[in-house]
Design a protein around this nucleic acid. Structure first.
Lengths: 111, 111
DNA sequence: TCATTACGTTAGCGTCCACTAACGCATTCC
DNA sequence: GGAATGCGTTAGTGGACGCTAACGTAATGA
Protein backbone atom coordinates (compact mmCIF):
# COMPACT_ATOMS: atom_id res chain seq x y z
CA UNK A 1 0.00 0.00 0.00
CA UNK A 2 1.18 3.48 -0.81
CA UNK A 3 3.07 5.26 1.89
CA UNK A 4 0.74 7.46 3.86
CA UNK A 5 1.75 10.96 4.78
CA UNK A 6 1.85 11.04 8.60
CA UNK A 7 0.96 14.70 8.80
CA UNK A 8 -2.08 14.31 6.62
CA UNK A 9 -3.24 11.21 8.49
CA UNK A 10 -2.71 12.77 11.90
CA UNK A 11 -4.60 15.92 10.99
CA UNK A 12 -8.07 14.35 11.05
CA UNK A 13 -9.73 15.44 14.32
CA UNK A 14 -10.67 11.98 15.58
CA UNK A 15 -7.21 10.67 14.86
CA UNK A 16 -5.61 13.68 16.48
CA UNK A 17 -7.60 12.85 19.59
CA UNK A 18 -6.62 9.19 19.40
CA UNK A 19 -2.96 10.12 19.36
CA UNK A 20 -3.43 12.37 22.34
CA UNK A 21 -5.23 9.64 24.29
CA UNK A 22 -2.47 7.21 23.44
CA UNK A 23 0.08 9.68 24.77
CA UNK A 24 -1.18 8.58 28.18
CA UNK A 25 -0.16 4.98 27.52
CA UNK A 26 -1.32 1.99 25.53
CA UNK A 27 -5.04 1.30 25.26
CA UNK A 28 -7.41 -1.15 23.60
CA UNK A 29 -9.82 -0.29 20.82
CA UNK A 30 -12.86 -0.40 23.07
CA UNK A 31 -11.17 1.66 25.76
CA UNK A 32 -10.48 4.30 23.18
CA UNK A 33 -13.92 3.99 21.63
CA UNK A 34 -15.49 4.93 24.95
CA UNK A 35 -14.11 8.43 24.50
CA UNK A 36 -15.87 8.88 21.16
CA UNK A 37 -19.39 9.19 19.93
CA UNK A 38 -18.62 7.18 16.82
CA UNK A 39 -18.61 3.41 16.83
CA UNK A 40 -15.88 1.00 17.87
CA UNK A 41 -15.57 0.09 14.22
CA UNK A 42 -14.86 3.65 13.18
CA UNK A 43 -12.24 3.98 15.89
CA UNK A 44 -10.66 0.72 14.82
CA UNK A 45 -10.37 1.92 11.25
CA UNK A 46 -8.79 5.17 12.32
CA UNK A 47 -6.28 3.17 14.32
CA UNK A 48 -5.48 1.00 11.33
CA UNK A 49 -4.79 4.13 9.31
CA UNK A 50 -2.56 5.52 12.03
CA UNK A 51 -0.74 2.20 12.02
CA UNK A 52 -0.23 2.36 8.26
CA UNK A 53 1.17 5.85 8.68
CA UNK A 54 3.64 4.49 11.23
CA UNK A 55 2.27 6.58 14.06
CA UNK A 56 1.07 3.73 16.27
CA UNK A 57 1.83 0.06 16.78
CA UNK A 58 -0.35 -2.72 18.12
CA UNK A 59 0.25 -5.55 20.53
CA UNK A 60 -2.06 -8.56 20.74
CA UNK A 61 -2.90 -9.94 24.16
CA UNK A 62 -5.69 -12.43 24.58
CA UNK A 63 -8.57 -11.08 22.60
CA UNK A 64 -7.48 -7.53 23.14
CA UNK A 65 -5.37 -5.41 20.88
CA UNK A 66 -3.36 -2.78 22.69
CA UNK A 67 -2.36 0.23 20.65
CA UNK A 68 0.43 2.56 21.58
CA UNK A 69 2.28 5.42 19.97
CA UNK A 70 5.23 4.68 17.74
CA UNK A 71 7.92 7.04 18.94
CA UNK A 72 9.81 7.01 15.66
CA UNK A 73 6.67 7.79 13.70
CA UNK A 74 5.73 10.58 16.04
CA UNK A 75 9.22 11.93 15.72
CA UNK A 76 8.79 11.93 11.96
CA UNK A 77 5.48 13.75 12.38
CA UNK A 78 7.19 16.43 14.40
CA UNK A 79 9.92 16.68 11.81
CA UNK A 80 7.40 17.18 9.02
CA UNK A 81 5.66 19.94 10.90
CA UNK A 82 8.89 21.72 11.76
CA UNK A 83 9.92 21.47 8.13
CA UNK A 84 6.64 23.07 7.17
CA UNK A 85 6.73 25.76 9.80
CA UNK A 86 9.61 27.79 8.42
CA UNK A 87 11.19 30.72 10.15
CA UNK A 88 9.31 32.94 7.74
CA UNK A 89 6.05 31.73 9.21
CA UNK A 90 7.38 32.29 12.70
CA UNK A 91 8.19 35.84 11.70
CA UNK A 92 4.75 36.37 10.22
CA UNK A 93 2.96 35.19 13.32
CA UNK A 94 5.27 37.13 15.60
CA UNK A 95 4.56 40.31 13.66
CA UNK A 96 0.84 39.71 13.87
CA UNK A 97 1.15 39.36 17.60
CA UNK A 98 3.03 42.63 17.94
CA UNK A 99 0.50 44.57 15.92
CA UNK A 100 -2.10 43.32 18.37
CA UNK A 101 -4.80 45.62 17.00
CA UNK A 102 -5.73 43.44 14.07
CA UNK A 103 -8.46 44.94 11.91
CA UNK A 104 -9.02 41.48 10.51
CA UNK A 105 -11.85 39.15 11.29
CA UNK A 106 -12.19 37.21 14.50
CA UNK A 107 -9.64 34.37 14.46
CA UNK A 108 -11.85 31.91 16.30
CA UNK A 109 -14.62 31.77 13.73
CA UNK A 110 -15.23 32.18 10.03
CA UNK A 111 -18.12 33.73 8.19
CA UNK B 1 -20.74 27.23 5.22
CA UNK B 2 -19.40 24.88 7.83
CA UNK B 3 -16.38 25.99 9.76
CA UNK B 4 -13.26 24.36 8.38
CA UNK B 5 -10.59 23.04 10.67
CA UNK B 6 -7.39 24.94 9.72
CA UNK B 7 -5.13 22.10 10.76
CA UNK B 8 -6.96 19.56 8.63
CA UNK B 9 -7.07 21.90 5.66
CA UNK B 10 -3.40 22.85 5.93
CA UNK B 11 -2.28 19.23 6.18
CA UNK B 12 -2.90 18.36 2.54
CA UNK B 13 0.51 18.30 0.80
CA UNK B 14 -0.32 20.69 -2.03
CA UNK B 15 -1.86 23.15 0.37
CA UNK B 16 1.08 22.85 2.74
CA UNK B 17 3.31 23.81 -0.17
CA UNK B 18 1.04 26.70 -1.12
CA UNK B 19 1.30 28.12 2.36
CA UNK B 20 5.06 27.82 2.27
CA UNK B 21 5.24 29.57 -1.09
CA UNK B 22 3.01 32.35 0.22
CA UNK B 23 5.34 32.79 3.17
CA UNK B 24 7.60 34.49 0.65
CA UNK B 25 5.00 37.13 -0.12
CA UNK B 26 1.75 37.50 -2.03
CA UNK B 27 1.37 35.73 -5.35
CA UNK B 28 -1.22 35.21 -8.06
CA UNK B 29 -2.90 31.91 -8.84
CA UNK B 30 -0.89 31.35 -12.01
CA UNK B 31 2.36 32.26 -10.34
CA UNK B 32 1.66 29.64 -7.73
CA UNK B 33 0.42 27.12 -10.29
CA UNK B 34 3.79 27.24 -12.04
CA UNK B 35 5.28 25.47 -9.03
CA UNK B 36 2.87 22.55 -9.34
CA UNK B 37 2.24 19.73 -11.77
CA UNK B 38 -1.51 19.99 -11.27
CA UNK B 39 -3.61 22.51 -13.15
CA UNK B 40 -4.25 26.17 -12.36
CA UNK B 41 -7.79 25.15 -11.57
CA UNK B 42 -6.71 22.69 -8.93
CA UNK B 43 -4.46 25.28 -7.35
CA UNK B 44 -7.26 27.82 -7.40
CA UNK B 45 -9.54 25.42 -5.56
CA UNK B 46 -6.93 24.69 -2.95
CA UNK B 47 -6.55 28.41 -2.42
CA UNK B 48 -10.28 28.85 -2.02
CA UNK B 49 -10.25 26.16 0.66
CA UNK B 50 -7.37 27.84 2.43
CA UNK B 51 -9.31 31.07 2.26
CA UNK B 52 -12.36 29.42 3.82
CA UNK B 53 -10.16 28.08 6.58
CA UNK B 54 -8.95 31.62 7.24
CA UNK B 55 -5.36 30.84 6.37
CA UNK B 56 -5.06 33.13 3.36
CA UNK B 57 -6.74 36.26 2.03
CA UNK B 58 -7.06 37.53 -1.52
CA UNK B 59 -6.68 40.92 -3.12
CA UNK B 60 -8.01 41.72 -6.57
CA UNK B 61 -5.92 43.82 -8.88
CA UNK B 62 -6.77 44.11 -12.54
CA UNK B 63 -7.47 40.62 -13.72
CA UNK B 64 -5.15 39.13 -11.18
CA UNK B 65 -5.96 37.83 -7.76
CA UNK B 66 -3.13 38.11 -5.28
CA UNK B 67 -3.20 35.69 -2.40
CA UNK B 68 -1.27 36.16 0.81
CA UNK B 69 -1.14 34.50 4.19
CA UNK B 70 -3.57 35.57 6.88
CA UNK B 71 -1.41 36.10 9.94
CA UNK B 72 -4.26 35.57 12.38
CA UNK B 73 -5.25 32.31 10.72
CA UNK B 74 -1.70 31.06 10.66
CA UNK B 75 -1.43 31.95 14.30
CA UNK B 76 -4.52 29.87 14.98
CA UNK B 77 -2.97 27.01 13.03
CA UNK B 78 0.12 27.16 15.20
CA UNK B 79 -2.05 27.24 18.31
CA UNK B 80 -3.94 24.14 17.21
CA UNK B 81 -0.73 22.23 16.62
CA UNK B 82 0.78 23.28 19.93
CA UNK B 83 -2.43 22.25 21.64
CA UNK B 84 -2.14 18.86 19.96
CA UNK B 85 1.53 18.39 20.65
CA UNK B 86 1.36 17.97 24.40
CA UNK B 87 4.36 17.74 26.67
CA UNK B 88 3.71 14.02 26.87
CA UNK B 89 4.44 13.75 23.18
CA UNK B 90 7.57 15.82 23.60
CA UNK B 91 8.68 13.40 26.28
CA UNK B 92 7.94 10.41 24.10
CA UNK B 93 9.94 11.71 21.19
CA UNK B 94 12.80 12.79 23.44
CA UNK B 95 12.97 9.32 24.95
CA UNK B 96 12.97 7.72 21.53
CA UNK B 97 15.91 9.89 20.54
CA UNK B 98 17.88 8.82 23.58
CA UNK B 99 17.21 5.13 23.10
CA UNK B 100 18.24 5.49 19.48
CA UNK B 101 15.83 2.69 18.66
CA UNK B 102 14.96 4.19 15.32
CA UNK B 103 14.59 1.43 12.75
CA UNK B 104 13.63 4.03 10.19
CA UNK B 105 15.81 6.11 7.96
CA UNK B 106 17.40 9.36 8.99
CA UNK B 107 18.73 8.57 12.46
CA UNK B 108 20.29 11.96 12.89
CA UNK B 109 21.60 11.14 16.33
CA UNK B 110 23.09 8.10 17.94
CA UNK B 111 23.04 7.05 21.58
C1' DT C 1 -19.14 -29.26 24.32
C1' DC C 2 -21.98 -25.70 22.82
C1' DA C 3 -24.14 -21.26 23.75
C1' DT C 4 -23.10 -16.69 25.03
C1' DT C 5 -20.67 -12.69 25.35
C1' DA C 6 -17.00 -9.53 24.08
C1' DC C 7 -13.45 -7.61 20.96
C1' DG C 8 -11.84 -6.24 16.69
C1' DT C 9 -12.11 -6.33 11.76
C1' DT C 10 -14.35 -6.57 7.00
C1' DA C 11 -18.49 -5.45 3.89
C1' DG C 12 -21.29 -2.07 2.03
C1' DC C 13 -22.69 2.54 1.22
C1' DG C 14 -23.39 7.52 1.03
C1' DT C 15 -20.63 11.61 0.87
C1' DC C 16 -16.76 14.45 0.24
C1' DC C 17 -12.47 15.46 -2.16
C1' DA C 18 -9.09 16.49 -5.71
C1' DC C 19 -8.71 16.72 -10.19
C1' DT C 20 -9.48 17.94 -15.47
C1' DA C 21 -12.54 20.06 -18.78
C1' DA C 22 -15.35 23.70 -19.89
C1' DC C 23 -16.63 28.23 -18.94
C1' DG C 24 -17.09 33.55 -17.81
C1' DC C 25 -14.91 37.61 -17.67
C1' DA C 26 -11.17 41.16 -18.28
C1' DT C 27 -7.61 42.95 -20.77
C1' DT C 28 -4.90 43.59 -24.91
C1' DC C 29 -4.16 43.93 -29.78
C1' DC C 30 -5.75 44.86 -34.50
C1' DG D 1 -15.55 47.57 -31.88
C1' DG D 2 -14.33 42.60 -32.22
C1' DA D 3 -11.09 38.79 -31.98
C1' DA D 4 -7.55 36.81 -29.34
C1' DT D 5 -5.30 35.96 -25.22
C1' DG D 6 -4.84 35.33 -20.32
C1' DC D 7 -6.63 34.82 -15.54
C1' DG D 8 -9.49 32.63 -12.35
C1' DT D 9 -13.58 30.11 -11.26
C1' DT D 10 -17.56 26.64 -11.90
C1' DA D 11 -19.24 22.01 -13.80
C1' DG D 12 -18.69 17.31 -13.74
C1' DT D 13 -16.56 12.89 -12.43
C1' DG D 14 -13.78 8.97 -10.57
C1' DG D 15 -12.00 7.57 -6.44
C1' DA D 16 -11.04 7.92 -1.58
C1' DC D 17 -12.92 8.69 3.00
C1' DG D 18 -15.61 7.87 7.21
C1' DC D 19 -19.28 5.79 8.93
C1' DT D 20 -22.75 1.83 10.47
C1' DA D 21 -24.04 -2.93 9.93
C1' DA D 22 -22.68 -7.47 9.64
C1' DC D 23 -19.24 -10.70 10.46
C1' DG D 24 -15.26 -13.79 12.34
C1' DT D 25 -13.10 -15.23 16.23
C1' DA D 26 -11.48 -15.64 20.92
C1' DA D 27 -12.71 -16.14 25.70
C1' DT D 28 -16.14 -17.44 29.30
C1' DG D 29 -19.44 -20.42 31.59
C1' DA D 30 -23.22 -23.78 31.93
Amino acid sequence: MTVLDPLEVAAEPNRRRLLQLLAGGEKTVTELALEFTVSRSAVSQHLLLLEQAGLVVARKEGRNRFYRLDAAGMNELRRLFDQFWTSELDQLVADAGRHAALPLHNPKEKS
